[in-house]
Nucleic acid binder design. Sequence first.
DNA 1: CATGAATGAGTATTCATTCAT
DNA 2: TATGAATGAATACTCATTCAT
Lengths: 211, 211, 211, 211
Amino acid sequence: MVSVDKRVAGRPRDETLVARRREEILPEASLFFAEFGYRNADVQVLAERLKVGKGTVYRYFETKEALFFASVDAGIRRLIEAIDIAVEGIEDPVVHITKAVHAYLGFFERNPHIVELLIIERAEFRDREQATYFQYKERQHEYRLEVFKQAIAQGTIRPMDPDRVMRLFSDTLYGVIFTNNFSRRQVPSEKQAEEILDIFFNGILRETGQA
Amino acid sequence: MVSVDKRVAGRPRDETLVARRREEILPEASLFFAEFGYRNADVQVLAERLKVGKGTVYRYFETKEALFFASVDAGIRRLIEAIDIAVEGIEDPVVHITKAVHAYLGFFERNPHIVELLIIERAEFRDREQATYFQYKERQHEYRLEVFKQAIAQGTIRPMDPDRVMRLFSDTLYGVIFTNNFSRRQVPSEKQAEEILDIFFNGILRETGQA
Amino acid sequence: MVSVDKRVAGRPRDETLVARRREEILPEASLFFAEFGYRNADVQVLAERLKVGKGTVYRYFETKEALFFASVDAGIRRLIEAIDIAVEGIEDPVVHITKAVHAYLGFFERNPHIVELLIIERAEFRDREQATYFQYKERQHEYRLEVFKQAIAQGTIRPMDPDRVMRLFSDTLYGVIFTNNFSRRQVPSEKQAEEILDIFFNGILRETGQA
Amino acid sequence: MVSVDKRVAGRPRDETLVARRREEILPEASLFFAEFGYRNADVQVLAERLKVGKGTVYRYFETKEALFFASVDAGIRRLIEAIDIAVEGIEDPVVHITKAVHAYLGFFERNPHIVELLIIERAEFRDREQATYFQYKERQHEYRLEVFKQAIAQGTIRPMDPDRVMRLFSDTLYGVIFTNNFSRRQVPSEKQAEEILDIFFNGILRETGQA
DNA sequence: CATGAATGAGTATTCATTCAT
DNA sequence: TATGAATGAATACTCATTCAT
C-alpha cells in the first residue's frame, strides 16, 4: 500500500507516478461524488478542487464512470481493512462479532460520505451485476461465516442457519447506516453498536424460548 | 359586445379526468423510473410506453421531478396502506409486530421496483430535507411506538427503550429490502419475515442473559 | 362598421356572428400581444382572458399569426380613421397638417399599446414585404401629399419637394411615438405636437433664409 | 501526497483568447440576430456559420440572451464612436450638429442590421428598464445638449428649450432610420441628412415668424 | 506530461394547432 | 358551434470526452 520510492537511477518509474496521482485524486473524488451525486458532478469542478486540469483527471481515469467506481472501491476497501484490523487475532466468536459491528458502524461514522457513494452507485448503475459493496461482501462471506459456525459449534449461539444469521446481521447494519444517513441521526456509533448487539444476542422477549 | 356570457356549452370539462389520467400514468412512471433511474429516464420514452404524446404527460405533471415525486409518494402510500390493513384490529403486540413485518416484506416482494424509487430519490435529491419515505415513517412513528410500549408494559417484551427497538426493527427491514434488491435474493418474504422475527424476539445466544 | 342585427327570421346569419366574435376578440388580443410580445404570448392565456375556449379563438382566426396581423390592422385602421376625422373638411393646408399631427400623437397617447404592436410586427416578421403600417401609409400617401402640394402652390410652404417634406414629417412622428414609448416619456401629446410643428414650420435658426 | 504544487506547465492559458473569440463571434451574431430576430435565431445555426461547435459559443457567452445584448451593445458603442469621431474638435455648433447628423445616418447606412437589433431588443425585452440604445443616449445627453445651448447663446439658434430641440432631433433621426429600414428606402444618407438639416434649420414656411 | 479549448450528443419543456365530443 | 384534451415539433443549454499545444 505504501508505495516505496524506487528512485534509484535517473528517472522515477511511471508506475509510481500513476499510482500516486490516483491516490491523490480519489479521496477528493469520493467527497465530490458524495456531495453532488453522479450526474450532477461536473468533472471540471473536481479538477478545480484538485487544482489540476480536467485533462489530468482523464489521464488517470479513463472515464468519469471509472473514476466513480474507483472511488467506491477505495471506500469499500478501507471499510474491509478497518474491520479486518478490528477483529485481527480475536478468537472468541462473540467478541469477534462485537468488534466487527463496532468497527463497521465506527467506520461509517467517520466516513459518512461513503454511504452516499453506495447509494449513488445503486441508483445510477442499477444494472451492474453486483454493486461493488456486495462484490466485496461475497469475498468476505466465507471467512465471516466461519465465525458464526464456530460460535454455534461451541454452543454460544443456538443452533440456527449460520448463513441466515449472518445475512440478517449484515442487512441490519446496512439498514442502520443508510437510515443514519437519511435521517441524519446523531447517535454515537458505540452506543448504536451495543444496542444492536444486545437485541441480536438476547432478543427482545422476556421469556426466551420461542417466537 | 352584446353576447350572453355563458354560450353554448361546448365540450364539458371532465372533472375526474385529471385524477384518472394521473392514476393511469403513475404506475407506468414508477416502473419506468425504477428501470432507468431519474436522470436516464427520458420522458419521451415514458410517453411512448403510455402511448400518449409527451405533452400529455406534461399536462398532468408539471415537471419530470413532480412526476417522480408523485411516483414515490404513491408507492409509499400503498405501503402504508398495506401495513395498516394487515394490522387492523390486532390487539396482541407480538402478533401486531409479526403481521406488520410480514406485510412490509410482502409488499416489497410484490412491488420490488418501489425499493428502487426510494434509492433513486435519495441519490438524486440528496438535499431534500427528508426523503418521502421518512416523512411518512415519522407520521406513523407514534402509533407504532405505542405497540412496543404496550408489549413492554404487559411484560411480553423485556424493559428496553421502545424507541430504539422500533428503530432497529425498521432499520433492519429497510436494510433487508435494500439488500434483497441489490443482491437479487429470492428468499420468499414469508420465510424471511419469520427468520427476522425469530432472531429479534429470541436473540441468537443460547443462554439469554448477558449483553 | 356597426353590424346591424339582421335577426329577422329564425336563425341569425352566421356572417354577423363571425364579424361580431372577431370584434370581441381583437381588442383584447391587441392588449395581449402588446403586453407579451408575439412569441411569449400564449393563446391559451388570451382565451382565458376572453373567457372562451382556445378552440374558439382558432375558429375565428386561422392562426396566431393571422390574429396578430388582424390586431395590428385594426389598430392602424383606427389610427387612419382618427386622423381622417380630425382633418375632415379642413381647407387650409397648414391647419390641416396641424390637425393631423395632433390627431396622430393624440391617438397614440390614448392607445400606447398600438406602438408596441408596430414594433413587434417588425421584429417578428422581418421579411414581410411591407409592414402593415406602411401598407396603409402608402395608400394615404397621395392624398396627404396633395395637402403639401397645395400649401406650396399657394406659397405658404416654400418651394421644396413635397414628397421629402412629407416623409420627414411622418418619420419624425414615427420616431416620436417610438421614443415616447421606449423612454416612457410623459409629455402631453398636445404640447408635443405644438413643439414639433413650431420647429417644422419655422426652423430653429434665427436668420431664416437658406440652408 | 508529496508533490510540488506547481507541476509542469501544460498548455498555458491564453489570457487574450476570451477577448479575441468574443470579437470574432459578435459581428456574426449581430448579422444573425438581425436576420432571424431573437426567438427564431437558433444558436446551432450561428455556430455553424462560425464554423465552431455550439458549445464554443456558450463558452464565450453565458446564454443566448447575453450574446444578444452583447451584440446590441457592441453596435451602439460603434455608433457612438462614429459620431464622436465625426464631431471631434468641431467648435461651431451648427457644423457640429451637421456632422453629427451625417455621421448618424451614415453609420446606419453602412450598418443597417443594427437597426434591426434595436427593434428586436425592444420587441423581445419589453420590460427592460431602458433599452441599451437609450442607456447610451442618456450618457451622451448632457454633452450634446451643450452644443445646442451654445448655439442659442451665440444667437445662431433662436431662443428655445434646448432640451426639446435636441429630443426632436434625435427622435426624427430615430424615426428616419427605422423608416428607412422598414420601407427599404434607398436614399443616400448624405442627401437625407441635408434634407433633414434644411428643414430643421430653416423650417418649411416661407414667411418665417412663429406658428 | 499537463493542460484547457473545443466539441456535439442528449433532453426537459413549451405551446400552436387539431379534432373528438 | 364551442370546447379543451391531446399532440409533437422545436430549441437552449450542459458537460463528458478529445486532442492540439
